[in-house]
Amino acid sequence: MTAAIEVRAVEKRFGNVGIIRDLNLGVAKGERHAIIGPNGAGKSTTFNLISGHIKPTSGEVKLNGDVISGLRPFEINRRGLSRSFQVTNVFARMSVWENVRCAVLWATGHRYAFWKNVDSLPEVRERTAQILDDIHLTHRRDVPAGLLTYAEQRELEIGITIASGATVVMLDEPTAGMSHAETDRAVSLIRRLTEGKTLVIVEHDMSVVFGLADRISVLVYGHIIASGTPEEIRRDPKVKEAYLGEEAH
């Protein structure tokens, strides 16, 4: 079976600085894969490379067996990969409802249509309502996204990301800055919404990571030093030294 995501020998330099060095990563279909690593390790940069936000200096990225490195973000998105952002990245002046609906439009085939009334597209309405319900924001549907609380914006960020129905979902620190209760809620939300999909998640909260992930990759200085099941990662001496060691004391 081809992997959902396959990153092969990817390098990324900003100027002279090599941020990502010989990155290799495989994520199987249907797998929940966590990427962990210290601050500045290159986790978000890895997301940017896979989602087409930036182009690799060398190496290639495959989505379901097709090379996608070099494609534009929207082309990659149309092939079924959707990502969220570490720093909330929504449509601030539009309502919560509009935010989610915009994310539904391409996938429901309405694209750039200027001859259809957006309010009278039943499948768009139903799907938007369903997602608002899923992310518990139905009661906030008419509020401009910019006026939501931080936790609500993070939930909307997830909603926009999954709205297109992408089969590969990448979430960059979805619970960052959330309280314990909010984190628990967000995790069960993520678990439910990515049922049957491939999930790649960057997360600092180890209880979330070990509770959610089928496999974990550890990224240090732009290089994956270990990749395996949570058990394997827990036991890996390199990981202990480079990353978990810090947590231990």
């Binding site: 989602s51 534009r72 929207f74 998105n77 990245n89 002046r93 915009c102």
Partner: peptide, 13 residues
């Protein structure tokens, strides 16, 4: 208008 960057990640150019 609000966020041209994000639009690219929901399928639009």
């Amino acid at each position: 208008r609000d966020n041209p960057e994000r639009v690219q990640f929901i399928g639009y150019d």
